[in-house]
């Protein structure tokens, strides 16, 4: 499974949606994921890829981890996975 597919799966599960409803340009807000859902998604991503996501819930926009859309999350995770290997 690609990074993209796995992340879409995690986000879909969190949003209680079908994976086909999670489009690349959706924001987490569009998908109905609140702040607790966000930290839970990040936890699931860290578990799935065994990475550390640099995300501080106090100020999400200041984090190095771009959560502005599904596509940006995938890109950020791909970079972290690459940096790790």
């Amino acid at each position: 499974m690609t990074v993209k597919d796995r992340i879409v799966e995690i986000i879909a599960e969190q949003a209680v949606l079908d994976v086909s409803d999670v489009t690349m340009d959706s924001t987490l807000e569009d998908l109905g994921i609140d702040s607790l859902g966000l930290v839970e998604s990040i936890f699931a991503i860290e578990e799935a890829f065994d990475i550390q996501v640099p995300f501080n819930a106090n100020d999400p926009t200041e984090s190095d981890f771009d959560i502005s859309s599904v596509a940006s999350i995938i890109k950020a995770v791909e970079d972290l996975v690459k940096a790790q290997s």
Binding site: L36, V39, E40, I42, F43, E46, E47
Partner: peptide, 9 residues
Amino acid sequence: DGKNRVHPF
């Protein structure tokens, strides 16, 4: 189990 992260809740 030596895990380094716990569930956010």
